Simulated assay, not measured.
Amino acid sequence: MSNAELAPDLVSRRSLLLGGLAAAGGAAALATTTVAQDMPGHDMSGMPVEPAATSTSPYAAPPAHGGAHGDMMTVGTVDHGANGFDPSTMLTEWETGTLSTMEDGRTLRTFTVEAIDKEIEIAPGVMFPAWTYNGRVPGPALRAKEGERLRIVFSNFGSHPHSMHFHGIHSARMDGVPGAGLINPGEEFVYEFDAKPFGCHLYHCHALPLKRHMHKGMYGAFIIDPDPALHPEFAEVAASRLLGTPENALWQEMVMVMNAFDTNFDNENEFYAVNTIAHAYAKTPIRIVKSRPVRIYLVNVTEFDPINSFHLHANFFDYFDTGTNLAPTLRTVDLIMQCQAQRGILEFSFRDHEAGSYMFHPHQSEFTELGWMGMFDVVEG
């Protein structure tokens, strides 16, 4: 069947025209105003420029080249209030639950999670019938400390059977698969296990059909911080990851869940994003203080595409695959690929850079043009 014969509601993502998307090829340059520098139409004439012959800094701005690469971006704004979550605040929202002490003296950390059917806006004017954890996509970023006892009280207020499958170490009866923690609408289940291993993990629904439950939004980050006392050879590094320590407070930490949405249910995604909202961090860049290091907990949950990726412009990072080691898996890279459920920790700094706007995006151009692209607004301080 030719494209001309396809019904309008079956048009593929490759022929989808988002308002304001200009086919410029490759990663787009953002036309926006940030605190650090003005880049109208990608005209960099307002930036300090050192002549090539006299420049002594490898980070000096290039000469203004004029001409725009185009604003490949959705038009309009998403109502974050109606959604009940804001991707800008979601970056640093850690759900730490409530603490109590068990009879054996160990710490018990309890989380409460609910499955809720909810329509959300994923791009300006584009609604998606999601299945959510606690009314948001991705679900809350659960964060605990290595060695604690975890208790997750899960209630299903949705219209389908759901579960919570945690990527971690636990018993078979806590696995969240059919026959082990899968619950029907109106029911409740309590998952309980020890927080191990430390690292950057995730949880998601494991009800069938799995691709349906994943794609509809039932996933979230699950972070276990290392206990410095258990890693004396890396105590300082472990302390820098432990939420609430002075060492951790030096870092600018954030969680990014790479996801996508098939809005016409043809098993192809029409929108791509980090933390759900297309172009969220392009329209509202992420403020970074250049003197402080950056740590990203990166998780890929994209359905219908085998690989997603993260590329950092004008900089390189160290990568800790799955986050279960305190020494980098890869050093000094600017691109990492992840299949679904793969995750890791990125660490980098803009200390030696000039202030300004620095792009990040996947290196699949289609993903970039359909919503998965953002900017860091690096400022002095």
Rank of each mutant, 00 (worst) to 15 (best):
I296E: 03
I296C: 01
Y297K: 07
Y297P: 02
L298P: 01
V299T: 03
V299W: 01
N300C: 03
N300W: 00
N300E: 09
V301N: 02
V301F: 02
T302Y: 00
T302G: 00
T302E: 08
D305N: 08
P306R: 10
P306N: 05
P306M: 03
P306W: 00
S309K: 02
F310L: 09
H311L: 11
L312P: 04
L312T: 03
H313D: 14
A314I: 02
A314H: 06
A314Q: 11
A314C: 06
N315W: 06
N315Q: 06
N315L: 06
N315D: 02
F316C: 12
F316S: 15
F317V: 01
D318K: 08
D318R: 10
F320N: 05
F320M: 10
D321Q: 12
D321G: 05
D321Y: 07
T322K: 15
G323K: 09
G323P: 02
G323L: 07
N325G: 11
N325P: 01
N325R: 12
L326H: 02
L326W: 00
L326N: 07
L326G: 08
L326I: 02
A327W: 14
A327Y: 14
P328N: 05
P328E: 07
T329V: 05
R331H: 09
T332R: 12
V333R: 13
V333K: 15
D334P: 04
D334H: 07
M337D: 14
M337Q: 14
M337L: 13
M337K: 14
M337Y: 15
C339W: 10
C339M: 13
Q340N: 13
A341F: 15
A341Q: 11
A341P: 04
A341R: 06
Q342I: 04
Q342V: 03
R343M: 13
G344P: 01
I345Q: 13
E347G: 06
F348V: 03
S349M: 11
S349V: 06
S349K: 11
F350V: 02
F350C: 08
R351H: 05
D352S: 12
